[in-house]
Amino acid sequence: MEITQDLVRYLEALGRIELSPEEEVKTQKDLADILGYIDKLGELDTAGVEPLSHAAGRTNITREDVVINGDMQEQVLSNAPETKDGTILVPRTFD
């Protein structure tokens, strides 16, 4: 897959971020390098190798359905740039 400038801009739009022209160039190169590395791995002959679902090799890590957390509103809101009546204020999202 070729990383074009258009693709970088499309990813910016999906991620709701804005890159400067210099960052766009750098990102385009980084992404191309990453995919190039993956393409290299793709050259390996993996016929007959069962796909791995997770590198950790563990399964069924679950917990009981018991409430263990209390009210942490203060801590949660302490990370927010702006708050109101217990909610986090963000730029308007409705059409």
């Binding site: 018991v66 957390n69 509103q73």
Partner: peptide
């Protein structure tokens, strides 16, 4: 009783951000 990936309550109608 709790959320899918953490031990917070799923109760409906609490004060904002108190089950987080």
């Amino acid at each position: 009783a709790t959320k899918i990936f953490c031990g917070c309550s799923t109760k409906f109608g609490g004060a904002p951000n108190t089950h987080v």
